[in-house]
Each structure stands twice: as structure tokens, then as C-alpha cells.
Amino acid sequence: MNTPNIVLTRVDNRLVHGQVGVVWTSSIGANLLLVANDDAAKSELQQELMAATAETSGVGIRFWSLEKTISTISKASPRQKIFLIIKTPQDALTLAKGGVPIKKLNVGNMHHSGNKVSLTKKVYVDQADIAAFKELVKLGVDVYIQDVPDEKKILIEDVI
């Protein structure tokens, strides 16, 4: 059992798309994308779409449920530089509470829906999101909003 080498964890409601699969993956030097999402773990089409992006970037990709991520991520080899991608702050909290060592949480796209209010142009939240973020911060996770790598980080505590 090792501590898995998670180079970055990102919340993105599009999971792996161009920005994530090419831009972030390239700039952090990850070699394995781990999509921790219960729906994606079951959807062949979603997997095929995201795997195409990973393959063109020359990195590996896995689609695991949250449960499998919690139980299995510690089997990662140290040479695996993992980019963990999740859809919601609630999922991030589930993983963190389950013992997945998330130190930094990059908040990317959380698009507008229902009556969510905006924190930035790309990040919209409701009360449940805010509660999850607060709890993550309490657990010692460095949570920040940053859409693209050359943009300045905005600490979540400063905006919620």
C-alpha cells in the first residue's frame, strides 16, 4: 500500500474534455486520468468519448465508481502520476472522507443550473455545494477556483 501520487484533483461538471484532457493534463505532467464518477463508470459511450481524448494525449484513463476509487486507489504505483477528476464538490467530500488523500482541489467548471448563484463566470453553487466546500476546507484541503493554468487561483474561503 502506497500513498497514491495524486498530482491534482479537479471538480469539473464536464469531466474529461479538451481543457481537462489536453491542457491541464499537459501542464501538470499527469500520466493517468482517473475519472471517479458513478455514472461514467457505467456508461460505455461516456467512456469511449473521454478515452479518445486521453489516448490522443498519450495518457492512461480509468473510470471508477466513488466506492472503487476509495477502495483501490492506494494500489497505484509511484510512477503513476494521477489526475483525479470528479464532477461535484459532494463527490470530492465523499472521496476525502473515504481516505483518498486529496490535498489540493482545483475547482473548474460548475455550470449554472436551477437556482445556483455565481462565484465566478464558470462556477455556480447552491447551499449544498457551499456546505461541501466548507467541510473540505475544514478537512485541510486547499480548495481554489482556477479555470485554466495561467489564471490566478481564487481561494474558495474568500468567495463563499
Binding site: 482517473l34 469511449e48 479518445a52 489516448e55 473510470f63 494500489k75 504505483s77
Partner: peptide
Amino acid sequence: KASVQEFGIQKPKINEDISNGI
């Protein structure tokens, strides 16, 4: 050259050999 394709023609590899990592 590595990034030109038609979707669905070549099935991407999602290999899970966990004997050496995940």
C-alpha cells in the same frame, strides 16, 4: 498524427492491468 481520428472506428484502450499500479 497521434490525434487524428473518426470517432468509434478504433476502440480506445481502457486497460486495467493492476498488477503494476492501477
